[in-house]
Amino acid sequence: MGVTKEDVESTLTSALKPSHLEVIDTSGGCGASFEIEIASEQFEGKRLLERHRLVNGALAEQMKHIHALSIKKAVTPSQWKPPQ
């Protein structure tokens, strides 16, 4: 039962309406390990722990099959800076 990068992207897109989203498959193709960078209005006024909880909550179903999830960035749209 594999989870794809596209599954993760579409779930996060519909749950958190991100202004920026990058999902990187770090599994080498088996679909069980991801890195996430996300910017969303819904993070406004929330501490990092609460922001991560929102991401984990949105992915609750997929988490059962994901071995590793690394949330590298969870910022508001105004905090988002594209990499130099």
């Binding site: 990092l48 722990l49 991560h52 690394s70 949330i71 590298k72």
Partner: peptide
Amino acid sequence: FFGGCDITVE
């Protein structure tokens, strides 16, 4: 509860 790995690193 403080957090997981990413939060601790940050």
